[in-house]
Amino acid sequence: MNHTFRAPPVSASAPAAVPSAAPRLGRVAVALFLSAHPAPALAVSALITALAVAAGRDASGSCLVALALLTGQLSVGWSNDRIDIARDTAANRRDKPLVDGAVKARTVAVAACVALVLCVPLSLANGAAAGGAHLIGVAAAWSYNLGLKRTRLSWLPYAVAFGLLPAFVTLALPGHPWPAATPVVAGALLGVGAHFTNVLPDIDADLATDVRGLPQRLGRRRTRTVAAFALLAASAVLVLGPPGPPDATSWTGLVVTGILAVAVCLPLRSAPESRLPFLATLGLAGMDIALLLLHGAALG
């Protein structure tokens, strides 16, 4: 008898399941990444890591700084979107992956907790004092997400978190020196300016969902004024704060950053909800760090 081998039948759905899984996971990964507020997370991490390199941290130390900063920033970004999901949904924020269903709330919550847990040992690996300073800043950012954003003190977590970033750098150096007052004050002012430019596009939606931080209480026009003043003041502190007269390059830097500070806060009538002012603020922060390192105050 002639026996012919026949392979067992394959389910028609099986071949489609494998190739379809990878694109779906890719979409979820992209949505999760976007939920972390990647622009400020990456910008802050890169700028302060550059500051650590310039201050004398070696390659391994600079990597520790970068990883601590990045995990802290990611935890803050993910927690912000997870905590605000109801308000973002009510405001029809279709730019938020959680609102359009691209990623699940549980996934974002788990990611925020994992990032926060990782941030603790990575921060403390830079030294107890430096790590403590960074973790206080991360805690301040979480306090904003958890409720301070709805109060008149909404600016305070930004001032604390940004003001402590120079301390995170210097306290990890030999001798654990506390930073000079100039970069701390400038960092706090820059944080306040970042808060006001970040909130500016969402003021109407925030008021509709009962978020009444200081910028929402002041309104758009006064919020732009305060933001411009804080950003300009940060640059002025870096140039005028150190002893001795500023040189020509420092004055030039102050003029340029001053023009940018005012420009990022001008009303955009064609796109009042644009994120451009906040993104420009991150660029201005980079210029301030360059001003600090090249022509302004030393960290220590």
Rank of each mutant, 00 (worst) to 15 (best):
L279M: 05
A133Y: 06
P38M: 11
L124K: 10
H295R: 08
I203D: 06
L282R: 01
V169F: 04
W142E: 10
L153V: 08
A236I: 00
P8A: 10
V53F: 09
A194K: 04
L146K: 09
T257R: 01
R87F: 10
A133N: 04
T281D: 05
H134D: 12
A161R: 10
A109L: 15
A172S: 14
A133H: 06
G191Y: 01
R220N: 03
A50V: 09
L64K: 10
I85V: 15
H295S: 06
A16Y: 05
P15I: 08
V99A: 15
P19N: 11
S45L: 05
V103K: 13
K104D: 15
S45T: 15
V256D: 03
V262R: 05
D81S: 15
V10G: 09
A90E: 14
I289C: 01
A159K: 07
A261C: 07
T281L: 02
T252E: 02
L200C: 00
D58T: 12
T71M: 14
F33P: 13
A90K: 12
P245M: 04
A52T: 12
L299P: 08
L200M: 03
G77V: 14
Q216A: 12
L116F: 13
Q73I: 14
V264S: 05
A29F: 08
V44M: 10
L165K: 11
A17G: 05
L293K: 02
A285V: 02
F168I: 07
W142N: 09
V117N: 14
A230L: 05
P177Y: 03
A263D: 04
S60K: 00
P23L: 07
G213P: 13
F196E: 01
P9A: 12
V226E: 04
F168E: 13
R275T: 05
A17D: 12
A261P: 10
H134V: 13
M287E: 05
V160C: 07
R212L: 04
P15F: 04
A112S: 15
T151P: 08
M1I: 08
R94D: 12
L276Q: 04
G241H: 00
P174I: 12
R24T: 12
K104A: 15
L146E: 10
A261K: 08
A86Q: 15
T182E: 13
I48R: 00
A128I: 14
P174E: 13
L293A: 05
D247C: 05
T209K: 01
A167W: 06
L190G: 09
Y158V: 06
V160L: 07
F33T: 15
K96D: 15
A161N: 09
